[in-house]
Write a protein that binds this DNA or RNA. Sequence first.
DNA 1: GTGTTTATCGTCAAGCAGACGACTATGATC
DNA 2: GATCATAGTCGTCTGCTTGACGATAAACAC
Lengths: 252, 252
Amino acid sequence: MPYDPSAFPPFAVTVDLVVLTVRRHSLCALAVRRGESPFQGRWALPGGFVRADEDLSQAAARELAEETGLRAHEPAAPAQDNGAHLEQLATYGDPKRDPRMRVVSVAHLALAPDLPAPRAGGDASNARWAPVEELLQHGGYGRDGEPVAPLAFDHAQILSDGVERARSKIEYSSLATAFCPPEFTVGELRRVYEAVWGVALDPRNFHRKVTGTPGFLVPTGGTTTRQGGRPAQLFRAGGATLLNPPMLRPEV
Amino acid sequence: MPYDPSAFPPFAVTVDLVVLTVRRHSLCALAVRRGESPFQGRWALPGGFVRADEDLSQAAARELAEETGLRAHEPAAPAQDNGAHLEQLATYGDPKRDPRMRVVSVAHLALAPDLPAPRAGGDASNARWAPVEELLQHGGYGRDGEPVAPLAFDHAQILSDGVERARSKIEYSSLATAFCPPEFTVGELRRVYEAVWGVALDPRNFHRKVTGTPGFLVPTGGTTTRQGGRPAQLFRAGGATLLNPPMLRPEV
DNA sequence: GTGTTTATCGTCAAGCAGACGACTATGATC
DNA sequence: GATCATAGTCGTCTGCTTGACGATAAACAC
């Protein structure tokens, strides 16, 4: 049976990125300022159209590289290099989500270690790392007193879903190491959990949990004092990707 | 800036459904036989094009109703009525996944109680409930000796992802009740877990766990002997949607 | 009545988590 | 150099949850 173009309505397909990192003890997301209508001048999640010959994950990795310079590695591969974790999040297709046309957006979630400065096509003033609470509180004010308008389109919903995915996934997987540099200390990993969950964790119990889980952390032999205080052992992420039993998120 | 149709390539967007139920102590999925090329005569997951004015979840609910007659309720709503649980699963967009054209499919996962007979547009011979292992083992043979060809398109991958989602989600949520009728016994719920996980669970420990979790099960006051043996209390699903601590899936 | 089936309650030991004391090793400050 | 602050690491104790499993209860089949 030949292909009948009239049998289906045409859609534009985009990828949007929730890029999360931990900066100054708080969970931050990458936001870019829109240069075009609609929502011109408003902050939005980075993203763009999927090309005709591209897979969705390829498109997400390309957008991630364009916005941050990060290479992505697939969920299967371990976080050995300095690339970012990238996984599909969810797809958003409300008919009215883009006033111009029918757009279906496949959102992806990227987790990266603390990065230098963002770049959006070389224009730093149009991209920034912002604490997720700041991006999600509609009508509040940012650190510099600038009024924070709601994110463009349905990006607040997407960001919220991405944050929730990250919060729940570090419970039962070793994904939190994606926020860390290749070598890190137990304390640095704990501060990642504390920033993502917004809670304080007991350093002693945390240390016992992560070092007692086989395959989670592999000591590299080195130590560091970059956090001050007593030198801490350096670890790499081990091969284990699933934490069983999971890390328990304290009740809030 | 006006809308420029040349700025993006057009896609067809479909929804595919992984409809799971528990029948005769085994996890089964709904499969339909394709009447058209490509993959004519092969089994596939039910699905169809998203209409021009439809949201993705609306399209999934419409397809579900067309194939099974089930009404869907959103994840937020409790499973009070006899509808099915429906949630978005993942999106598949490999450029070559459909040989005819560029199709992005937003797969959804539906969980339903054991149903009468399937109907695919009224044609029962072209729809069936099949154990998921049977649908996933490429080149095996079904119960009736009929050779089982691999599912069409990338539907084996989609089904596999849906089964894995269901298996993991009943660990930490009350989702297993979606496989049960509105009123059910602890034993029936246990057999759901056993079928989905493919393991045997201790009836006594299971009973202690589910009845000891506040808000998980609400006794209706009634009893039943439909399973034989001593009459069992009937329960409805309680308001709790998250199980904390989770039900532990035994190592296999 | 006896046996079978399923449901439900109880017991016990092992393991894990939360609370928290104690000690160690560095840099900063006086 | 002594003292202090900071951060890391090792233990201890208690309570809760789990897994294994014994025992009892209430139906049906014969």
